[in-house]
Design a protein around this nucleic acid. Structure first.
Lengths: 233, 233
DNA sequence: TTTCAATGCGTAATTATGACACAAAGATTG
DNA sequence: CAATCTTTGTGTCATAATTACGCATTGAAA
């Protein structure tokens, strides 16, 4: 490989984007972790990430990571925080912009990349020590999504096209880490009229079939424009 | 000046911290703006900022900007967002981490620095076009502080030591840009028990003197630990 | 046709919110 | 020194939102 160098008059830190990709499998909340192949922190688990390319935006970089690790695109993705303590990477000064996303694990086909020994979905309740300051980054992400889900329809998008109310509740309970009253959850959700009921129902379930809904994005945008503050939980 | 160069194997963007310092003067909400001396965007107004030093954290950098522009320290300061579009600076790739803060304008003595023609508090309702993407950054900050103030005791800290409830309400109204009911504001605030009433009262006011309160930080921390969700407005 | 597990609807008690009346304090004014 | 004026501070009441449940319904499986 050809050696090339970039020279600046002042010191420039390196910039990475690290991704916290939460995955929902219908039951519990998981997060995508990779096992590092190389030093530093070889063999330790870490969040997937990449150095920011010269010409790409931060968000594009996060999308690139998603594409690389699971070949998917078009998911809810949001900037979480920028971590920049001078000592957070032993090699050189590296500032990391963290993005977080939420996907269905079933949509991913995890394939370990060149720098990775393994890649896995790990349950939120069983996270090992992570490389760099990634444990702290992950904790920040968990706090954020728990706060956010209370007043933003996170997860409605990820329930592609159609979902039942109990399925959505399962997601909420997985994220919040506590159970919610079935009847009140339904009542509140329906009262804000951001769901459209479909005629379709569940098939082949050993109990009363729940009916499918879809997210009424138009209606939601209207509410947002009016500055209406949803409290989903 | 001695010429020195820093060389890397991969391209490294430059990193700045830009600060949105909101100032409260007892009446309305203002923001600190500087007028640029040099190109690009010479003579245009912009947010104060600085390149991140090799050894300082992002937050330290924000504190350094505060120190430089107004010789103050120890204020509410929070990371807002990181702006990283490749084209946002015409010179080279510059990624900007924005921090926002809230201070009392009276605590500042604004002195234009070497690269600045002027430095001023500008009312939130009278903001000119700003250099770079700073208009967008400022708008993001306004949105954020308006959202945040609803459920976090922002401004309690800045009311140094003691303040009256009507003074606090004035701040809330300035930030939210609308008036609130005096009686309900008081009732709600007192009901959450994060204020300690002092024996002291206002002096030399041409009407009934309001009594001073202070923020009960201990009690607030307890509430946060319990996961209690305050809704201040 | 009975059982079982989960969906879906309703209701009552409690709590929170919003609108507003009125008393109290304290400087100012005639 | 009493009347006035402005702002603080307390209370009330109707309405809305939240919470905690009871119970009927559905549809596959036993």
């Amino acid at each position: 490989m050809e050696e090339q160098f970039y020279t600046y008059q002042y010191p420039h830190p390196a910039i990475t984007v690290d991704c916290i990709i939460f995955g929902f499998d219908g039951q519990s909340l998981k997060v995508m972790l990779i096992q590092r192949k190389s030093e530093p922190f070889a063999k330790m688990w870490a969040l997937p990430g990449a150095f920011v390319d010269e010409a790409e935006s931060l968000e594009s970089c996060a999308e690139r990571v998603l594409q690389k690790e699971g070949n998917i695109s078009g998911v809810y993705l949001e900037q979480l925080f920028t971590f920049g303590l001078p000592s957070r990477d032993p090699r050189e000064r590296v500032i990391s912009v963290a993005y977080m996303g939420l996907v269905k694990t079933a949509d991913f086909e995890l394939i370990a990349g060149n720098d990775e020994l393994q890649i896995e979905w790990r349950d939120i309740s069983e996270i090992p020590d992570l490389a760099f300051d990634h444990s702290q980054i992950l904790q920040t992400a968990i706090d954020r999504i728990r706060g956010k889900i209370r007043y933003q329809p996170i997860g409605f998008e990820l329930m592609n096209a159609k979902f039942t109310i109990p399925q959505l509740q399962q997601l909420y309970e997985a994220i919040l880490g506590k159970s919610l009253d079935r009847r009140n959850f339904r009542k509140k959700l329906l009262s804000m009229q951001i769901l459209k009921q479909l005629s379709e129902k569940q098939q082949n379930v050993a109990h009363k079939a729940a009916s499918y809904y879809e997210f009424d994005r138009e209606r939601y945008e209207v509410l947002m424009k009016e500055g209406i503050y949803l409290e989903l939980v």
